[in-house]
């Protein structure tokens, strides 16, 4: 047999990934669904918290604002393993939140990813909203908008940036492993997600299967991005249609 180094595993991994997808392997399906559910929930909750927080910081002027921006920027780079360890100690039966009985549950994984995703979503939102042309912000006020209307108008203007915030949040959630390994426990069929399964398979030397799951993970992230980007571009598609139908020469 000709030894091709690492390419061998990657090649077989690709083949195995297709095999697993098309055979509808129940274990792989379950792992994939757990990943999607956990990271999807964390992303949505992260958006529900991160977007209002990021937008408020971008639009309001208050004393500790600069400090808060630094805090968010720092939290954007939180090491997942540290978050995992901290939450493990919190959620552990002997920990202060042990009574919640959340350790080694998908909910604990959502919580861990939420802690990681919310600052990222907030940070990207903050920069997207800050980047809205100051003249447009002033124009909204000039048109008579009250503070709430002004926020809505500006968020609408920053909507592509907000979508990016959600996409980036999801990307970091679905690819995260350190935190969910610790608080989820990688329990088979319950808290085993794609990334933690990949770590386990790698430790066991099952490189081909690990690569196969890696390819599924990549494919998933890609599919979600395509979906969100499609949503992002839909307004533009509508615009081209409108242009051909609606264009009247100026007289």
């Amino acid at each position: 047999m000709i030894y091709l180094g690492g390419w061998e595993e990657i090649g077989f991994g690709l083949f195995r990934a297709l095999q697993l997808i098309f055979s509808g392997d129940p274990e792989v399906l379950r792992i994939t669904l757990i990943s999607l559910r956990v990271s999807g929930t964390a992303t949505l909750l992260g958006a529900a918290i991160g977007i209002p927080v990021g937008a408020s910081i971008a639009l309001r002027r208050f004393p500790a604002r600069t400090l808060l921006i630094s805090v968010i920027n720092t939290l954007m780079g939180l090491p997942p393993v540290v978050v995992g360890l901290f939450l493990y100690l919190m959620l552990s039966n002997f920990g202060p939140m042990g009574f919640l009985r959340l350790l080694y549950t998908p909910e604990a994984m959502v919580l861990a990813q939420l802690v990681l995703v919310a600052p990222i979503t907030a940070g990207v939102t903050l920069s997207a909203v800050s980047n809205v042309d100051a003249r447009l912000k002033e124009m909204a006020v000039s048109l008579g908008a009250d503070p709430l209307q002004e926020v809505r108008i500006i968020l609408r203007e920053a909507r592509l940036g907000l979508l990016t915030a959600v996409i980036v949040g999801f990307g970091s959630a679905i690819s995260e492993v350190g935190a969910i390994m610790m608080v989820g426990g990688n329990l088979l069929g319950y808290t085993r997600a794609l990334t933690t399964a990949i770590v386990l398979l790698t430790n066991q030397g099952a490189f081909t299967e690990a690569i196969a799951l890696g390819i599924i993970l990549l494919g998933l992230a890609f599919a979600i991005n395509i979906l969100l980007t499609y949503l992002q571009l839909r307004t533009k598609a509508g615009l081209f249609a409108a242009e051909t139908e609606r264009h009247h020469p100026v007289t």
Binding site: K236, L239, A242, H248, V250
Partner: peptide, 12 residues
């Protein structure tokens, strides 16, 4: 003088 422009995106 821009009747019929309602649905145009302003970028165009």
């Amino acid at each position: 003088g821009l009747s019929g422009f309602e649905k145009r995106m302003v970028k165009t």
